[in-house]
Design a protein around this nucleic acid. Structure first.
Lengths: 139, 139
DNA sequence: CGGTAGCGTTTCGAATACCGAAACACAAGG
DNA sequence: CCTTGTGTTTCGGTATTCGAAACGCTACCG
C-alpha cells in the first residue's frame, strides 16, 4: 500500500521538520511527479494518455503519483473526466522556472567541462564562494 | 555501493530524458540533499557538524550525499578543510526561493482548509484552471 | 451473444534507498 | 599509552519504489 502523500508540517523525506519546501521537494522529487504535472500543462489528460506520454512510466507509479498529487491539491478530476491541474498546480509551473533556468546553467557547466569522470579541467574547477549570509534558517 | 550522482543528459529518477530540471530534482529530491546545502549556506561545515545539525541523518547517507553533491559541483572542499558551497551551489539557493514561496502558499492552503482527510471544504475545493498554453515541451 | 478493444485501476515479486550502529583510520593532547 | 575528536566506511535489516502483468468495466461490432 502506498503511504500518505507528503504534506507540509508532517515529516517528509529529506527532513523531519516538514518545512514546506522540504515537503514540496519530497512530493515533486518522486519519480514522474513533475513530469505528470508538466504533461498536464498542455491540458487535461486521462490516465492512459498520461502514461503514453511518459515513456516507461509504470501504471502503479502513475496512480501513486496521481493520488499523491490529488491529495496535495495540485491536480483534480471531475467525476470520471480526465485529470487536470488545479490553480495551485498551475502556479507551481511558474515557481519552477528559476530552478529550471538554474538547472540549464548547471547542465551547461557540467557538459562544457569535458564530461569524462568528474575532475573538472584545471583552472576551471569549482571555486568556493564567499558565504552570502543566508537570511532565513531552517529551524 | 552508492550509484553515480544524477547528471543532466543522463537518465535520472523521474524521467529517462535527462532534462536538466529532472536531473536537478533527482539530485535535490534525495533525502537530506537539500538540507545539507541549506545548512552550508551559513558557512563551511565539517562532516560531523553537518550530521549534528541534521537530526537523525545517518552517516552513510551523509557521505552518499556529500559525494553526489561534490560530483555535481555544488559543494567542494580544499584538502581536508570543511565542506562548503561552490558558486554554483550558492546560486541554487536563489533559484529555490520562488519554489519556497510557492510551498509556503501551498502549505497555508492545505492547513487552512481544516486538515482531516482531503476533501476540501465545500466552496473552496480546488478548481480546475484554464490551461495556460505552456511554452516548452518536455522531450 | 461472443469477441476484442479501450480505459482506469490494483496486485505482486524484485530492486533500490535508507537507516542505525558499529568499526576503522588518523591526528592531537593529556 | 590512553583518551578524545575528527572523517569515513561497512553491514544487516527495513521501508520505499519500481515494472510488468493482471483485473474489471464499458463500449463497440460482427
Amino acid at each position: 500500500m502506498a503511504s500518505a502523500a507528503p504534506r507540509p508540517g508532517a515529516a517528509v523525506r529529506g527532513s523531519a521538520t516538514g518545512r514546506p519546501l522540504m515537503a514540496a521537494l519530497d512530493l515533486l522529487g518522486r519519480r514522474w511527479a513533475l513530469r505528470i504535472l508538466w504533461e498536464l500543462r498542455h491540458g487535461p489528460l486521462g490516465a492512459r494518455a498520461l502514461q503514453a506520454r511518459c515513456d516507461r512510466m509504470s501504471s502503479s507509479v502513475l496512480y501513486d503519483r496521481l493520488r499523491e498529487l490529488t491529495e496535495a491539491g495540485l491536480i483534480c478530476r471531475d467525476d470520471n473526466e480526465p485529470y487536470q491541474l488545479t490553480d495551485l498546480g498551475a502556479g507551481l509551473g511558474a515557481a519552477l522556472e528559476p530552478l529550471d533556468a538554474w538547472a540549464r546553467n548547471w547542465s551547461d557547466r557540467l557538459t562544457s567541462e569535458h564530461s569524462p569522470k568528474r575532475r573538472p579541467a584545471p583552472g576551471s574547477r569549482p571555486r568556493p564562494v564567499a558565504v552570502p549570509r543566508g537570511p532565513g534558517e531552517p529551524r
